[in-house]
Every structure is written in C-alpha cells, then in structure tokens.
Write a protein that binds this DNA or RNA. Structure first.
Length: 385
DNA sequence: AGGCCTACG
DNA sequence: CGTA
DNA sequence: GCCT
C-alpha cells in the first residue's frame, strides 16, 4: 500500500506504538532547540506518518512504502523495534539543555528563543527565572507563570462543553442570531485538549467587527477574564473592494484565559489532587470571521497543525492553489497580480484530490482517526447545521 | 541545491 | 519574538 | 532529514 506524501490525509486510529511516535517527537524537539528547522520538520512528519497508520508497525518491512521515512528515521525505528529503546533518544532525554528548554517552553508565551536566552544566563528552573531581577516577563509570560498549573493541565470534554455554554451566553447577549461552533481538537473528537477553540459569527453583515469586543466586555463584567489578547480584523471591504486578496488579512480573534467554575461543569473540574479552589483557568481562543468565510475559518481552525501544513502544501504544489484560513485561490486563474477566490456566494467548495493522487476527501475526525464526517460542505455552513 | 504552512500581534 |  |  502506498501512502501519499501528504501523510496526515490518511485515516488514523493511532493508538499503538506510542514509543516510536514519541521517539520522533523528541528528535524533532531536540532539532528545534538546536535551530535545525529542516530536521525538526522531517522528524515531525515522520511522527505524523506513524500516527496516521491504522495498524501498528512491527517490522521495518512494513514501512517500506511510507513517505517521510528515510535512512535516519528507519535506523531509529529498527533500534526501537528490536530493543524498545533508542540510544540517540535516550541521550537527548538525559541532556540538561534539552530538559531545561523543554521546561521553559512549556510556559505560555515562552518559545525556543526565549528559553535559550534564559539557559545561556545559567538559569535552570522556574525559581531561577522568577528570582532573576534582570528578566522582564511580558504580559503573556506573566499569565503563563501565574496560571501554569491550570494551563498545562488537560482540558476535558465536559469542561469544553461547559465553556461552550459560557461563551454562548455571552455571545447571545450581544447578538441573538449569532452562530457558535466548537472547533480545534474537540471538533476532531478528542476527549482532552490543551485549550478550547470557538468560531463565532453573525448573519448581520459588518456586525462581526463589534461582536468579539462586546463578547470580551461581557466576560470581563462577569469577572472571569484572566487574560485577553485581542487582534482586530484587518479586513476592509470599503477600502479596497476590487483588491480582495490583498485586502484579506485576518479575522478578528482573541487568545483568552478564562476562569471556569467547578459548579458549571458536569461531573466537576479536571483538577489537581487537593485543589479546593472550586475553579480553574482554561485557555480559550475565539475567532470571528464574516459569515461567508465561516467554512474556511472552520477548516483552518479544526487542525491539526500538521494536517493544516500538509493541506496547504498540497493545495499549492499539487493543485496550484493557495489555501489559508480565509479562502482558496486558483493560481492558474489569476487575474493580474490577484487570485480568484473559490467557494464564495455560499456554494460549498471542495479541495478534493482525484483518486489517482491517492488522496480522498475526509472529515474532521479522520485527521486523527474516528468516525467519518464531512469536513467541509454545505452542512458545515451556518444555517446548514 | 533548495524548500519545508501561513498570518497575525 | 510569540500565538494559532 | 526527507523530498523534488
């Protein structure tokens, strides 16, 4: 069986052989910390290929026709398959620099560069960082440390459902006709996530501009807004109606940290042993596209990250199209410097690979393996649900 | 030899 | 630089 | 590091 190069298109129950997958994730992370972006991506793809398989790899021969697995990754696999461990991976895991950078980058707002900076200063623990007078934490990092325990703890499906109610109430107070959709990992059928993503849109044109700020204000008045970074949309039809592509930048969105009350969660909070607070902090993302862009936003925000990468590269290289969260553009039908946008005026768009390309149209759940659903169709559009 | 998703704050 |  |  031949898998397409764009590996995360494949079905993927992916329960077994976590150790192989984890081995590549460690190698990817290590590459990232050493600023080797190429190898990092290659190991991520290798991990993604393994995750996408519906069976457990038990011999090297079974990986013969798989993409993204080359000399190095196969050598690691042979080691793991034979003795259940890899010398290279264990060396990385025992490395002080790797351990420290892994710890630092687990903080919301701290990436590889900042982690590296702190490491070079000789800092090795959170205590070291917080005690260093020479370190200025930005707003995001302050929140990251303040809510570290809560933010790094998984969010349950029950907590996501409860948050849906909280957001829905705040949205409905602003625009009763608005549509709210749960996206991200929970839309892919996951039981746990690290945050909760929503798309909110209103049928009243132009209203989406004030929608999010008003929702944020509502949450603030409730006293449950712990962190908020709001990004206004740069979309402006009045300015450049004919230059759609360049005018299209980004939808309004916000990264939030919300206070979730235990009393509002069916079955209680997913919290630490002996936590008597009765609430926890949760990362929440809201994105608010104009209604005619709902489907593209949903496609872009349903993920996973590797799936989005593969899908966009596939659109560009194989289909000669450009895909982003706003639309799909046909490069071969470009008028001067601009592209024609596909799938406007409400008809469902399809980025459907033909059978000979070895790729099929799939649903959100297929992006990590569960029941089949139609990913992008009329049913996914507001009013169709 | 050159690319690796794309776009924001 | 960081977020998704 | 893997692919084109």
């Amino acid at each position: 069986m031949n898998l397409p190069y764009y590996s995360s298109f494949s079905p993927s129950p992916g329960l077994a052989f976590l150790s192989l997958e984890d081995a590549f994730e460690v190698l990817a992370e290590s590459s990232e910390f050493r600023e080797m972006e190429g190898p990092c991506l290659a190991f991520r793809r290798a991990a993604s290929v393994l995750k996408s398989l519906p069976w457990a790899v038990q011999s090297l021969g079974a990986t013969r026709d798989l993409p993204c697995l080359g000399e190095h990754t196969k050598a690691v696999m042979e080691e793991v398959l034979q003795c259940g461990r890899s010398f290279e991976v264990e060396k990385i895991l025992s490395d002080e620099r790797y351990q420290t950078l892994k710890l630092f980058t687990s903080v919301f707002g701290v990436g590889p560069k900042t982690a590296e900076k702190w490491y070079r200063r000789g800092l090795r623990s959170f205590t070291d960082v917080l005690a260093d007078r020479g370190i200025h934490l930005n707003r995001m990092q302050q929140s990251g440390f303040l809510h570290y325990g809560d933010i790094t703890r998984a969010v349950s499906k029950a907590e996501a459902r409860s948050l849906r109610n909280v957001i829905d109430e705040a949205v409905r107070a602003v625009s009763p006709a608005a549509t709210l959709a749960l996206t991200g990992g929970f839309r892919r059928g996951k039981e746990f996530g690290h945050d909760v993503d929503f798309i909110v849109t209103t049928p009243e044109p132009g209203r989406e501009k004030s929608l999010l700020p008003n929702v944020i204000n509502g949450l603030k008045k409730q006293g449950i807004l712990l962190f908020c970074e709001y990004q206004a949309s740069t979309f402006d039809t009045a300015k450049l109606p004919s230059y759609r592509f360049e005018a299209m930048d980004h939808f309004a969105k916000c990264f939030l940290i919300l206070r979730l009350e235990a009393s509002q969660v069916e079955g209680g909070l997913h919290c630490a042993e002996g936590d008597g607070r009765g609430w926890r902090a949760v990362r929440v993302d809201l994105v608010s596209p104009p209604m005619d862009r709902f489907a593209f936003a949903l496609l872009g925000w349903t993920g996973s990250r590797q799936f989005e990468r593969d899908l966009r590269r596939f659109a560009r290289v194989t289909q000669r199209m450009i895909l982003d969260n706003h639309g799909l553009y046909d490069k071969t039908k470009a008028a001067s410097a601009h592209f024609q946008c596909i799938g406007q005026s409400g008809e469902p768009f399809e980025l459907r690979a033909e059978p000979e390309s070895g790729v099929r149209r799939i649903g959100a759940a297929d992006r990590q393996g569960r029941h089949p659903v139609t990913a992008v169709s009329r049913q996914a559009l507001p009013g169709g649900q």
